[in-house]
Every structure is written in structure tokens, then in C-alpha cells.
Design a protein around this nucleic acid. Sequence first.
DNA 1: AAAAGATTCAACCGCCTGTAT
DNA 2: TATACAGGCGGTTGAATCTTT
Length: 244
Amino acid sequence: MVSATAGKEAQNLGVRKGAWTQEEDDLLRKCIDKYGEGKWTQIPLRAGLKRCRKSCRLRWLNYLRPNIKKGEFEEDEIDLIIRLHKLLGNRWSLIAGRIPGRTANDIKNYWNSHMTKNLKTSGPDQTKTKAICTKVIKPKPRTLSMNSQKLKVLVSSTAGQTHKVLDTPPTPIPFPAEEESSWWKCLLTEEEGERESLLPLNNEGGEFFMSSGFEGSVEGTRKEGELFVRGSEFGNLWDLLEAT
DNA sequence: AAAAGATTCAACCGCCTGTAT
DNA sequence: TATACAGGCGGTTGAATCTTT
């Protein structure tokens, strides 16, 4: 399977690279205001930009999109990043999805410049200990439609335990907003009683994560195309968080 | 004041996966 | 079923900026 890479795209005649100008930003913003996000291949043409689709997408997501928060990370944001990183590893987009206004790139940059430095300065012994204690759940989050064959394979491959094969559309299970917020409150406060609540997975893109080594069970959907896993059946996820 | 080193962060790259044909 | 295309992701790079000597 051959995919068109940004590099190959950039080889196209007249495709610009490097820093964006104010004029380009304006063109991109106007275009997305008019046509909406998505259809990134059409965006450069519609906007009159000599940029590849990926460059446009990245510029929008990381810089031009409204409600993007700039400046210093606040203490609670840093705390959340640390916790989520322990939980998810370098799944920056998943982490960013839970920190309003912050982009995956921002968080990744912050982590690479601040947190890795802290790990180094904390001394070899501590990092060694951490490496042993921290058991990062590193699933492969992917956006899967309910029709995806892969989804069936993934779920059935771990069957024999508590998993179900979703041959038929699962019954939607209501997922009240307050449950989600309490889950996040729980993540910050680590209140014992809250941990049996539902564990939401990326509430924006209908994305869920799961891997073959992931001991959760698919219970249903929040709405069509959105799956989640019950926190209580998440293995010892919370124990992992606490252990660090 | 200037050079060297360190840090930050926007942007690029290559890869993976889903979807359409 | 095979192929091409599109969307998305994490890792990496390099220029700009800041700090130290």
C-alpha cells in the first residue's frame, strides 16, 4: 500500500514549506469559516494556498483553531498531563482531548522540554524505579466505525474472557455529562468511591481505545460509533495510577 | 558586548488505518 | 480482494529566542 506522504506532496510544483505568513493564516481561516473543517485536500485549492493538505490541517489544529489556549501551563493542567501520561503513555492526542484549549503538539512539546528534563534531574535511581513501577497502558487508539471488520477482530481476539463480538449494533447506553465530569474530577482527586464510574474515552471523535492486551470489555455505545469501557472492568488501571 | 550553549515550539516527515472504488 | 487516497498520529528537526559565561 503506497500512501502519499507530505514529503511527496511537497514535491508538487510550487508547494510552499516553512513558517506561515499572516496572509496565509487569513486565507486558511476564511476558507475554513466558509467551508468548515475537513476535506483537507480541497482546502489549499479553495483557499488559494500553495500548501499541502497536511500543512493546512496542522496549522489550523495547532494555531488557528478558535479557543486554543496559549501561554504557560497551569498547575492543574500539568498535574493532569502527568497523570494522563502515566495512564496512556505518549498518546498526545488523547491527552490533549482531555485538556481544553491545549493541542497535542503543545502538550508533546511541553512534555519533551519540561518533563523529560525533570526526569533527568531527578537522578538515575528514581528514574530507574519509575521505569519499573510505571506500567504504561499503551493502547492503539484508532477511530473505528461500527462497521469496521477490525473492530470485530479486536474484540473477538480477546474473547474467552468477558468480551462480546459486536455483530449487531449495540444498544446505546446513556452517558450523562455529569458522570464524565466526575470521572475527571476523580482522576485529579483520586477519590476511591468514584472509581467504579464509567470511564469515558475520547468524547469528541467517537474514538475508543483498546488493544489485545487490554483487559476491558466492550459494553455498548454512548451514541452511534462511540464505544466506552467500564472503569471497574479496566483491569487495575487505577491501581497503576496509584502505584506511581 | 559577544559568543556559546540551552530551550522552545512551529512545522515537517513517515507511517498507520479507514474508506471508497 | 486489491489499490489509491485521505485523515490522523507520534517522532523529529531546525530556526528563533533566551540564558549563561
